[in-house]
């Protein structure tokens, strides 16, 4: 088997005295889709934010596509160029149009000429099915549309890995599906994805592995079938009983 595209080994992180991530080991193969779930405050966001260096950590190592991210956070820029991220609260740039949101990074980080960047951005906006809204401002769109723009924006940088931090939690129920559909499409195209979500339907349909976290640790990781049918750990069972009814 080839080297994993994301390899987390012995990761430990503290907020002051609070040990938020404890001995995390996780390897993600190219094209693999991983769903991370767990109770609120268990460190899911912190974990995936470590992968693109939005958070520092004190012990361990993260290697993304052969680039090592040690505790002292060298190579940050190189890693961020490989990793796209989608946030719970979209975090689109409200003063820029949808198209400008999607061309900003290609122009200023990759030095792509504006024309090419726009053509490329339109391609991704078509993929998330909102090309005709390109000249609107984010504030003029629904939450579901904004989140799809955020996905397109991340994709314009041609990332090798996509991180999603509860991408549908801030959405009204009728908009959750349009975002999940976009993510399923992305998965079918072979994108490597780490998704923090409580959408268990999505996990069943798309994930190769489901990772359950609690109190800063990985409690259980398994294929969706095994995970949902036969959870091993007591905490996993409790969690599943609360979220699946």
């Amino acid at each position: 088997m080839s080297d994993p595209i994301v390899k987390i080994s012995g990761l430990n992180k503290w907020y002051g005295d609070f040990h938020v991530l404890r001995d995390i080991d996780l390897a993600v193969e190219k094209g693999e889709r991983i769903v991370i779930c767990g109770p609120s405050g268990s460190g899911k966001s912190t974990l995936i934010r470590c992968i693109n260096a939005l958070e520092e950590f004190q012990e361990g190592e993260i290697v993304v596509d052969g680039i090592a991210l040690g505790p002292n956070l060298k190579h940050i820029d190189a890693v961020r160029r490989e990793v796209g991220m989608v946030f719970q609260s979209f975090n689109l740039f409200p003063h820029l149009t949808v198209l400008e949101n999607c061309t900003l990074a290609p122009i200023w980080v990759r030095n792509i000429p504006k024309k090419d960047a726009e053509i490329n951005a339109m391609k991704f906006l078509e993929r998330v099915k909102i090309p005709h809204q390109a000249n609107k401002f984010p504030g003029q769109m629904s939450g579901g549309q904004q989140q799809r723009v955020a996905i397109a924006r991340a994709l314009t940088m041609n990332p090798k890995v996509m991180l999603f931090d509860e991408p549908t939690s801030a959405l009204d129920p009728e908009m959750v599906k349009e975002v999940l559909d976009t993510m399923v499409d992305l998965a079918e195209e072979g994108m490597t994805m780490l998704v923090v979500t409580h959408e268990m339907g999505f996990a069943r349909e798309v994930a190769n592995r489901v990772v359950f976290m609690d109190a800063g640790q990985i409690i259980e990781a398994n294929t969706p079938n095994e995970f949902f049918a036969a959870p091993q750990h007591a905490r996993t069972k409790l969690f599943l009983s609360q979220i699946l009814r």
């Binding site: 961020r80 796209g84 991220m85 946030f87 609260s89 740039f93 900003l104 990074a105 980080v109 940088m157």
Partner: peptide
């Protein structure tokens, strides 16, 4: 909001 800076950083902007 802090998320603005984080989103920009995640896109690789200095």
């Amino acid at each position: 909001p802090r998320g603005q800076g984080e989103a920009a950083a995640a896109l690789g902007l200095s």
